[in-house]
Design a protein around this nucleic acid. Structure first.
Lengths: 184, 184
DNA sequence: CTCTATCTATCTAATGATAGGTAGACTGAC
DNA sequence: GTCAGTCTACCTATCATTAGATAGATAGAG
């Protein structure tokens, strides 16, 4: 159990959510945690190793949140609003989604990390699709669960991306209105 | 009129749409155009000057496309699908929206460029809002034009961001289905 | 003669990465 | 028990490369 390793991953995720992978250097990360850059290399030989660990941790935390939403919310509306709440928390911290950020930089990622990113979005959409299917009766939209899932996931990613530019939350609010419009 | 200046801007925009501002260097840009990096500095003393020129050019081209859509398309549906077509062209070139890309990097931009970015998204949403208002009778959604505009703009940005990860176009397709679902 | 549009040459800072060292904890053999 | 060997978790020091930026020269146009 390396606490330092975890600490580095968490700090790196925070930085990348703010300024992107290209603005995260081994040295700034080391400084944040209070070690030398070579110590970061000890845990993550190459930057791609660090990126990989970050995405996997982010996916894990994301899935935990989805599980908690499943446990605590009964209705479709509550589940969807709780899902939106994940993104709200991100934008309120003046961050962007880690995987959204890396998606922008996708052409400079290796194949493994690209696959991890795809996994993240796929899992999010799968969860949404299942939620829509399970509460079909509460749904008042002609669109299929799968389409709604893709619509909402990409909509939320876009919303927090754009809202961060002017510091507001108008696009996230629009997503909330959209959710309410498709739930009976 | 400096053709070289324009050439540099266009090449820079292309690169940033692929790999982001942080992966564009004066040297790579100079190489692409066939000059020395100092020549790029001649036109754009600092990187922020280059970014500014890029965003302004991108906004200009975007507005030209919107004007053309207005001229060539009569119905709400045609206009919206033509608007989606702008994003389709981007993802088919394996690029991301220039301003979407810079939005991800917003924390490392200066205030002027942040304002330019905000302008881009505002103009897009304003155009959409106007289109929705002008064709209110064709609209079959309980959501207001302003909300629909924000929904669609951020949805499309998110869609091409996510689609680029797996190389598909499923999220953009979902946006197309959404458009059809709100047009009578 | 001056202005524009380049060039060569160079600077300093930062980057990812590597080599090699070390203190302390752990482990198995005697 | 203890002691050599090994492993973990760092460290110092350094490298080559690349980055943004600047100074100063120059060739050609008007």
């Amino acid at each position: 159990m390396s606490g330092r390793r975890t600490e580095l991953e968490i700090s790196a995720i925070d930085t990348v959510q703010r300024v992107g992978m290209q603005n995260l250097s081994f040295r700034t990360l080391a400084d944040q945690v209070g070690v030398r850059s070579s110590s970061v290399h000890y845990y993550f030989p190459e930057k791609s190793d660090l990126a990989s660990a970050m995405i996997q941790r982010y996916i894990g935390e994301f899935n935990e949140q989805l599980t908690r939403i499943d446990q605590r919310n009964a209705t479709l509306r509550k589940k969807l609003e709780a899902f939106l709440g994940i993104f709200e928390k991100v934008i309120k911290a003046d961050k962007f989604c880690l995987c959204g950020m890396m998606a922008a930089e996708v052409l400079v990622l290796n194949d493994d990390n690209r696959a991890l990113l795809a996994e993240y979005f796929q899992q999010a959409e799968d969860w949404l699709k299942t939620v829509f299917k399970e509460h079909k009766k509460q749904l008042s939209s002609p669109l299929k669960p799968k389409v709604l899932a893709k619509l909402l996931m990409s909509g939320l990613e876009g919303a927090i991306l754009l809202d961060r530019v002017d510091g507001g939350s108008s696009r996230l609010s629009a997503q909330r209105e959209f959710i309410r419009s498709i739930v009976r």
